[in-house]
Nucleic acid binder design. Sequence first.
DNA 1: CGATCGCATGGTGTTGACAGTTGTCAATCT
DNA 2: AGATTGACAACTGTCAACACCATGCGATCG
Lengths: 233, 233
Amino acid sequence: MDVKNEPSHLNDLSVVKSVSLTSALEKELERLILTGELEPGERINEIHLSNRFGTSRGPIREATRSLEAKGLVEVVRNRGVFVRRLSVQDAIEIYDVRAALFGQAGRLLAERMNDELLAELTRLVDEMDVVAERGSFDDYYPLNLAFHNFIVTSAGNRTLTAEYHRFVNKLHLFRARALVQGGGLAVSNREHRAMLEALASGDGDRAQMTHWRHVALAKRRVIAAVDGASRID
Amino acid sequence: MDVKNEPSHLNDLSVVKSVSLTSALEKELERLILTGELEPGERINEIHLSNRFGTSRGPIREATRSLEAKGLVEVVRNRGVFVRRLSVQDAIEIYDVRAALFGQAGRLLAERMNDELLAELTRLVDEMDVVAERGSFDDYYPLNLAFHNFIVTSAGNRTLTAEYHRFVNKLHLFRARALVQGGGLAVSNREHRAMLEALASGDGDRAQMTHWRHVALAKRRVIAAVDGASRID
DNA sequence: CGATCGCATGGTGTTGACAGTTGTCAATCT
DNA sequence: AGATTGACAACTGTCAACACCATGCGATCG
């Protein structure tokens, strides 16, 4: 075995050979895009990237084709690939899809509810109540994320989970993303409680409805925020 | 304008230069997969394909990476890419996602209903009734497809439409696809009428429910068919 | 006779080079 | 001055060659 004796703390990309360069690059590019290091609308220069990562252009091109299919970038022939920029309209459409998926997750979870799941969900909602009371948004955000992820993951449909995350990711490309966070912590958590009760009841219809509505209301808040912002401009 | 004066009836793949080779190949491969010309589980040989299409391996690799992201093929490092094979479990999961998306489409359509849309939907359902009466499955199938497509498209959410079709496509990879068609034409069209009435009423909740249920029932029929088949084996 | 090792082979992973296209900038013309 | 043209620079599209890996087969050894 001629193991390359490279220090293991090198760039993530040197840990390759067990996983293809292409998929490692794809992950890294996705990270750069979702963290905003590559901004929406920005052009991705293949040569520049290949220099930066020390590879040739082939794997980078393959990675970007994959990202294109995932909807994170846009490829224009002979012009290059651009980080996808979401319009307000796009974001609204995504909210509808997300609502549908999240509602389905709620239904599935209600149908397989048990004490253990209920305990964890209750814990999260209780904790969010505490944090919301003192209006600490920075503490609320990760809890909120964990709550939603827990619901979707626990629903037990891997396809649904993957799809849900794909769309949540896409929302990161929304320029006016800052607006998404409007609407009061207490209000949000009141909706969480309604979801929790529906889940506890084991009523699939009711769970789907409450979960759907939670996202639909988030969508409405975003629209309101966007309208407000554009009125100011 | 220096329009290339090539006969327009050439091979699909030679009409390139306006559209990239990669995306032309991707479309062609997708067609081969969805029509079953490339069977689920079958390995895709890059060299073989590049000879067949007269290109190098680069564009083919890019196309397959895109198909991988779309979930139509599976890439195993150093082994090759394989046409994805869906398990019964996968198919069931997809039905849940599809139900969620179709339900959402129903809701959106109900909220933007008008006489013109209603007329077309009614026409399709009436026609399906006629065809169902004489049990002609071959005539029913395209009408049924058109009906569903019309609903999803008319809902006016392009993201949702794309996503819905992606999942319907994926179901084509299901080995036991023949079973999907079980369950009586008349029964199916009775569900269509319920959907139609809900849409006509403009009640979003009710429309979402009826549309969701229609797919959920289809899922149940598939499960029953699969169970029956496996009991025979 | 069975198991293991090594090698040959077919195929994928990655690269560097070349061809073709787009956008820019300066010189020229109106 | 403004518009137009032509050449140049920067990139992307495509290709062919090389490197590396996985599998199967046969020789060798226990």
